[in-house]
Simulated assay, not measured.
Amino acid sequence: MISADEFKNAFRLHPSGVALIAADPGEPVAFTASSVSAVSADPPLLMFSVSALSSSALSLRLVDTVVVHMLAADNLDLAILGAKRGANRFADRTRWRRLPTGEPVFNDVHTWLRARILHRIDAGGSTVFVGTAIESGATDTAESDDGLVYRNRTWHRLSPVSAMRLPELAAIPLN
């Protein structure tokens, strides 16, 4: 087996999309995650993990649903807010609202998915959550927004100029 440091070094060089995951087990909680992945389109399943050391870890064991906010580059402030230890992520009531079902949703996010948690899987020092997407919201500009990724302990903007144009590979699906 490789060491924890070797493993972390390998993954810190692998870019990840950035999301803010929010829930309300009685009081709203949110945290920034780079572990969100699509599992299946039919049914629409997603997954994410949270470290047992996260202040949100225990709260997530109590909820049936979460809202996964897919962050764009202009949401960097939300990514930082969700990553800060001890921050009151919900202090500014103008930045978020509640869905009719009670979950918190941040207003300036261009795309979000509400998911029902199907499985919680303990894995090392983390818990992997698998959920089915049951509701979504997107703005008209969501597709044209610059993406936000995290790589090598730094935030990066993905824009049209960062796209690699390879026409012969464009039609090849990744999965």
Rank of each mutant, 00 (worst) to 15 (best):
A38Y: 01
G125F: 11
V29T: 07
L81E: 00
D92S: 06
G82A: 09
F11Y: 15
A10Y: 10
D146M: 13
A33W: 10
A133R: 14
D74I: 11
T132R: 11
A138V: 06
R95A: 00
A171W: 10
L53I: 03
F11V: 12
M70A: 09
G86K: 14
D146R: 15
R89K: 15
A22S: 15
M164A: 04
A57T: 04
P173W: 00
R120Q: 00
G124E: 08
R165G: 04
E135M: 10
V68M: 02
T141K: 12
L53E: 01
T154C: 13
T141A: 03
R116V: 00
S16L: 12
T101L: 08
A52K: 15
G102S: 03
A91F: 10
A33C: 11
G102C: 05
S54E: 00
F11I: 14
W155Y: 15
S54L: 04
N107P: 13
M47Y: 00
L166Q: 00
D122T: 07
D140I: 05
V109K: 03
I80A: 14
A87P: 14
L158P: 13
W155M: 12
T65P: 05
A38P: 12
F7Y: 13
P160C: 02
K8S: 04
R157L: 07
S144Q: 15
L174W: 08
G124Q: 04
S37E: 00
D77G: 13
P160M: 04
D92Q: 11
V36L: 09
A87Q: 15
V66Y: 00
I121S: 05
F90I: 03
G131L: 00
A52L: 11
M70L: 14
D122E: 01
S159N: 11
M70V: 10
P15R: 06
R153F: 08
K84I: 12
T65D: 00
M164S: 03
V67A: 08
S159M: 06
A22P: 14
V39H: 08
A10Q: 02
L169E: 02
A19Y: 06
V63S: 01
D42Y: 09
P15N: 08
L62F: 07
S136R: 14
R61I: 09
M1E: 14
A138M: 06
L169P: 07
L60D: 04
A170R: 11
L58P: 15
S126V: 07
E103N: 13
S59G: 07
A4P: 13
L148A: 05
D140S: 08
V29N: 06
I21F: 05
R153A: 11
I21D: 03
A33H: 11
L46P: 11
G124Y: 02
V68C: 03
M70F: 12
V161M: 04
A57D: 05
N107A: 10
I121F: 05
Y150W: 12
E168W: 05
A10R: 14
S54A: 08
V29M: 07
D145C: 13
E6A: 14
F106V: 02
N107R: 15
A33P: 13
P160F: 01
V18E: 02
A22W: 06
G137Q: 07
A133E: 08
I2M: 13
F106K: 02
S3F: 10
I21T: 05
R98S: 02
S51Q: 11
A79G: 12
A91Q: 13
S159W: 03
T139A: 01
